[in-house]
Design a protein around this nucleic acid. Structure first.
Length: 553
DNA sequence: TTCGAGTTGAATGT
DNA sequence: ACATTCAACTCGAA
């Protein structure tokens, strides 16, 4: 009988036992030849990465909880999680030898960072004669299949994505393994028994998390909690059927949506299972539809993943083929104020403080603060906002975070940049009394509903009586929205014109771009049927800016 | 080339 | 609760 061999399943994002095809493949390989294979589910924790990765304390905790729960769930089915410390490219050669590995399975990911890492691991596996099996279960639809159907280009509208996806069959979740092949450490292997605890899930301390930096834990990580939360929401059948995202409140004290996003991000919950369960609930019932329905929300994730898979620079402006090039400004003081909820706009500040404390804010709240940072008010690059969200959001996901910032800054997908959120009016619609502000900006707790969204309007006398003087206890607003948002709309018009000119210039071989743009411009103004349009004023501006642009070149 | 549609705007009307 | 105006974008289909 040959020496015992090891099958490794490598957990990265999909931190779950359910609907995990790569884990299942590892299990089946072992079952095919009992007594010959040992299964070791691993997670690799790179101590080096903890230093530079942009992960705030709340998300480290979520990961820590998810790993602990995964270990427990694996132990329930006769196995355990091996958390291996080190860099994957250092870890694997050692494990391949030490454990006599013959098969490595993991879930495919589309992030450039992952692809690079996985390419190295694949090479090493080849070198050590280890077979690799990669399964796709991150998204419901395979981005590659969508891209193939669209001649290699990512669909840039949700509708288009939907029509392409509709031609594919809907993949269903795979089975949950009942019992994993034995992975108990052989009794005779005393050394390893001793080392056993060195594979335990990390403590918060190991992850460099200081307890005092943690906020209240509203959303504990892990597959168990994910499935509990899913069940809880799926039981609200009429709520599920009538769900319309734009009608949910961004500033209610209790979340108005499922808050399953952090669980989907870490793979504690499978998107396919989520989709299947929602479909089961709405089947045969009158229900809302994409893009606003719950099914629609899952499809947005698919949409962004597909676009992200097609563009390695998806999280950047420069070099990103689908991203509008905008001359954003840098303003450290403004960025700092936004980041820490000190803009002087209570609605914006409340959201940013909730984000830092709890790691989750409503989707529409993200819209409000993202618009404020970029095209609406501060004119700061969406990449800066992306960085802050990446650190603070429990559900921070490379593709979705970038995709949504592209959307909100009107850099891709969404182009109606003249629709600007008001940092005063938007929140009032769903929380006229300002309860949300009172909770997260307690300085203003005594301000009455009439004025809490714009406390600078109170006279100094009133401010004193309300126990919060603007400019002392709470900051003066850093910009005047009513004025600046109009200027920014004009800047966006200019940015769009420049980008269009460049595009047309490239298409025509960069020959005489002025002329080609001039004709394009004339067309748009002459075709205008509006009797109130002022073609003269419209005309002078673009030629100026385009002139400037091409002089620079 | 033209035209309609686009998850989630605001302010002001009815 | 819904309609209009504001100013005017791009994508994709016809």
């Amino acid at each position: 009988m040959s020496a015992q061999q090891t099958v490794i399943h490598w957990f990265r994002k999909g931190l779950r036992v359910h609907d995990n095809p790569a884990l299942l493949a590892a299990v089946r390989c072992c079952h095919d030849s009992p007594n010959q294979f040992v299964l070791r589910p691993i997670f690799i924790l790179d101590p080096g990465i903890i230093q530079w990765l942009r992960v705030g304390p709340n998300r480290w905790r979520f990961l820590q909880q998810s790993l602990t729960d995964l270990d427990l769930n694996l132990r329930k089915i006769n196995s355990r999680l091996y958390v291996v410390r080190g860099n994957p490219s250092d870890v694997f050669p050692k494990l391949f030898q030490q454990w006599n590995v013959s098969l490595l399975t993991f879930e495919h990911d589309i992030e450039p960072y992952s692809l690079k890492r996985d390419a190295t691991v694949k090479e090493q596996a080849k070198k050590y004669g280890v077979k690799i099996q990669i399964e796709k279960s991150l998204t419901i639809y395979d981005p590659d299949e969508i891209l193939k159907k669209n001649s290699g280009k990512p669909p840039l509208t949700y509708q288009k994505y939907g029509s392409l996806a509709a031609t594919l069959k809907v993949p269903q979740p795979v089975d949950v393994p009942e019992k994993l092949p034995t992975t108990c450490i052989p009794k005779q292997d005393v050394d390893e028994q001793k080392l056993c605890s060195c594979y335990d899930p990390p403590s918060l301390e190991e992850l460099g998390v200081k307890i005092e930096d943690l906020g209240e834990c509203k959303f504990p990580g892990g597959e168990t909690e994910a499935l509990r939360r899913l069940k809880e929401h799926m039981e609200r059948k009429s709520w599920v059927c009538s769900f319309e995202k734009p009608n949910t409140s961004p500033n209610s004290l209790q979340p108005s949506t499922t808050v399953l996003s952090p669980y989907v991000k870490f793979g504690c919950l499978s998107a396919r299972l989520f989709m299947q369960q929602v479909q089961n609930v709405i089947k045969g019932q009158k229900h809302s539809h994409p893009p606003v329905s719950l099914v629609g929300q899952l499809m947005w994730r698919e949409f962004y993943y597909c676009a992200a898979a097609a563009e390695p620079n998806f999280d950047k402006m420069v070099g990103n083929s689908i991203c509008l090039q905008v001359p954003w400004t840098t303003n450290k003081a403004h960025l700092e104020a936004w980041t820490h909820g000190q803009t002087g706009y209570p609605f914006i500040d409340a959201i940013m403080r909730q984000l830092r404390q709890e790691g989750w804010i409503h989707h529409l709240a993200r819209h409000a603060v993202a618009c404020f940072l970029t095209r609406g008010d501060l004119w700061i690059s969406w990449e800066e906002g992306q960085r802050v969200f990446e650190e603070l959001l429990l559900d921070a996901d490379w593709a979705l975070n970038a995709g949504n910032w592209l959307w909100l800054s009107a850099s891709a997908f969404f182009h109606q940049y003249f629709r600007v959120y008001s940092p005063v009016a938007f929140g009032k619609k769903t929380d006229p009394e300002g309860k949300f502000i009172k909770k997260y900006v307690p300085e203003l707790a005594k301000y009455p509903c009439g004025i809490i969204y714009e406390p600078w309007k109170a006279s100094l006398d009133v401010q004193r009586k309300l126990g919060c003087v603007i400019g002392e206890t709470y900051p003066k607003r850093i910009v005047i929205h009513e004025e600046i948002h109009k200027k920014n709309i004009q800047k966006m018009t200019e940015a769009y014109r420049k980008n269009k000119a460049v595009k047309e210039g490239i298409m025509k071989g960069d020959k005489d771009p002025e002329a080609s743009n001039y004709s394009g411009k004339r067309k748009s103004s002459s075709s205008s049927t509006s009797p109130t349009s002022k073609p003269a004023a419209k005309k002078s501006k673009p030629s100026e800016t385009i002139d400037k642009y091409f002089r620079k070149k």
